[in-house]
Design a protein around this nucleic acid. Sequence first.
DNA 1: ATTATTTATCTTAGTGACTAAGATAGTTAT
DNA 2: ATAACTATCTTAGTCACTAAGATAAATAAT
Lengths: 151, 151
Amino acid sequence: MEEEHIRRIRKLNQAYAYTSLQMHESIARTAGFSGTDHKYLGFLLERGQMTAGELSNLTGLTTGAITGLIDRFEKKKLVKRQHGEDDRRKVFIVPDTDKIMELLAPLYHDFRNKSAELTASFSNDEIKIIESYLSTSVEIMKEITARLSSK
Amino acid sequence: MEEEHIRRIRKLNQAYAYTSLQMHESIARTAGFSGTDHKYLGFLLERGQMTAGELSNLTGLTTGAITGLIDRFEKKKLVKRQHGEDDRRKVFIVPDTDKIMELLAPLYHDFRNKSAELTASFSNDEIKIIESYLSTSVEIMKEITARLSSK
DNA sequence: ATTATTTATCTTAGTGACTAAGATAGTTAT
DNA sequence: ATAACTATCTTAGTCACTAAGATAAATAAT
């Protein structure tokens, strides 16, 4: 019964998305972040230093909101402001990777371990299937988001 | 190379969680919802009518915040307040399922179709593997969340 | 060179959703 | 009846956000 499979996977996906959101919110709260800061800190961590304007574009926040975001991070000494040498208007936000990792790593520790264990419990062929499913899903969601944002 | 698999799946998971969040935020904005309202409306839709207090417990919001949430939904005629017959202090939030679906269904239409297509592209055995991966992941994340919330 | 335009970030004023604490109204227990 | 409790609402204050404009630096135009 194919319809049944589709329904079950859809339900699982909803649960997955919701639970993931909950977990990340919990982790953020535990780390002492309010609201969406955790998400944007992850951004900085992954992409490395960038200017305030770039972060504004990437996040969709106004430059004013970015100023506040950097202020909060800077107060916690998780990032530093560094004026551009060639263009002194630019403000590079330089994440203190070690400090951020020190703060977040313990909170992700268990999740990482258990997830790794789960992955290791599958064979190579099985992992290919899971990877294929996940990556195509990501593509689908990106496409939907792009379409909605352009409206 | 098992380590490599684990790393790749972890990266895919991060991308999945992030993209999913982005998509749901886009859908919310398109539907005219600010912030987290969309999430809680989904809650009401899935669980059906409940009292303000129950929603407060489930969401973790204070009762004051729930009052505002219901006000906003009520103004858009997506839910109705209904005083309990046995206990007149209680306020049941009754979602207008048809109206909510009418608002949200078109926005999820493409996503649902493409996801169904993706699911249908796998064999029965492959789907079992994906289901197993997703459901165990959900369990892991629930456990982590519960542990953090109790601290 | 001086001036105008553009660019990058910051500042200010106002908004909206949130919390904490207390008010209101209805219920249960003594 | 009165007290204690419960469910929701109200109020005051906070915080992150937007929109619009200020500041400062870079680039272009005359």
